[in-house]
């Protein structure tokens, strides 16, 4: 079984809800900024943005 999904980045407006060093974390000041950063990163990395619905987005390579 091969691992083929990776969290490439975490984009959050809730700094308290993320930690660790598995993936780079980007902090945003507002939802708009979060959406924008997430879209940029998605286009750059060819990943997909997923919304954990608690102010945290994760960018996953499928």
């Amino acid at each position: 079984m091969e691992l083929n999904k990776f969290i490439l980045a975490i984009i959050t407006v809730e700094p308290a809800k993320v930690s660790g060093c598995g993936a780079p974390v980007f902090f945003a000041d507002s939802r708009e900024e979060q959406d924008r950063i997430a879209l940029y990163l998605a286009r750059i990395t060819e990943g997909v943005i997923h919304d954990l619905e608690n102010g945290v987005y994760i960018l996953v390579k499928h």
Binding site: D35, A38, L39, V48, I49, H50, D51, L52, E53, Y57, I58
Partner: peptide, 20 residues
């Protein structure tokens, strides 16, 4: 439903950002 995409009652995937 929130961030989750459905066709009828079948769950497809979780998607972020309003644009998508």
């Amino acid at each position: 439903e929130g961030a989750n995409l459905y066709v009828e009652n079948i769950h497809f995937m979780n998607l972020g950002t309003e644009y998508v």
